[in-house]
Design a protein around this nucleic acid. Structure first.
Lengths: 165, 165
DNA sequence: TTGCTCCTCACGTCACGTGAGGTGGC
DNA sequence: TTGCTCCTCACGTCACGTGAGGTGGC
């Protein structure tokens, strides 16, 4: 049995293409490099950065863990912990601890956003009735509206907050 | 039938208490005031800001719409649209449009975070097996691990990204 | 030569954090 | 007087955005 021949040579790409493939700005990619999170395989004669296909996976890794609440500095430390060598199970245990904490905070964030989602829905439902409001009313009256099924003091939070404070 | 007597006089609070009740920093509350989003009812003799109980609702309103993706500048514009007067149904229609867009983007954000949540779970499941990894292995080997049920090239994204790039 | 992409500074932005130095109230 | 809270600058931070002025490659 022969080993499969790798036909697609890992053709390097310039920063613009990496940006397109990852949805990141060129500026952001430069920043990741400054932080030691990303490294072009080499430079062209014209000093252009040339990235391997693996860079896409790395940028997505950065992006997802940023969404999970890690800073670029946190990510650098995580990479250093692993690449500075050390015993495998210990290094992975450290990564595990970080992932576990991120899972916790990500779930918290989802819960928070789900609450906001509901409150936006409640606000929209309330505002639906405003569509049959007569144009004789001024916006300044909205805080104490009693028309169209609205009852003063029963406004959803995101509507009440506009008038209070 | 007599009107219910309002026993609890709206006793004003200082900025520290407003901070505690809303979970915001004093600095943040000062900033909201600079942006015209929050206003103390008056100042004490010692120039201390004094807020009414309604300020709590306002700060929560700010906070939730920030979570939904609006900037402090966006919020000021929203308040201006309503308080600058104008016809009620038109003002509320503008608010409706903003809420509708925020609902869309909030759901998008929840979906994104749900993906991250799953990927963290996958990463943790993979790393569980590392606990029975022998300490003879170096962390530098993890990229091509074939032990404990691990197969090279089948690492979850958040683990593979550590080694690639 | 013309476009297009890239390069390296370097200042701007947003929502705060963090002192610095000083004052008020029980 | 001692704490505690508050005040107003004002600079720092994080993850970029946005030109400024210049070069490389088809």
């Amino acid at each position: 049995l022969e080993k499969p021949i790798q036909l697609s040579v890992d053709k390097p790409m310039r920063v613009g293409e990496l940006a397109k493939r990852t949805g990141k700005s060129v500026r952001a990619l430069h920043l990741y490099e400054e932080f030691g999170l990303l490294r072009p395989v080499h430079r062209s004669k014209g000093n252009f950065r040339l990235f391997s296909a693996a860079a896409v996976a790395r940028v997505e890794w950065i992006s997802k863990l940023q969404d999970a609440g890690l800073s670029l500095h946190d990510l650098r430390e995580l990479l250093e912990d692993v690449s500075d060598g050390g015993v495998a199970p210990a290094a992975m245990e450290r990564v595990r601890a970080v992932f576990a904490e991120r899972l916790r905070s990500t779930r918290e964030q989802i819960a928070k956003l789900s609450t906001v989602e509901k409150e936006l829905e409640n606000g929209l439902a309330y505002l639906d009735a405003c569509r049959s409001c007569e144009p004789v009313h001024q916006a300044s009256e909205c805080g104490t509206c009693n028309y169209n099924g609205h009852h003063d003091g029963e406004q959803p939070i995101l509507v009440a907050g506009i008038h209070k404070g």
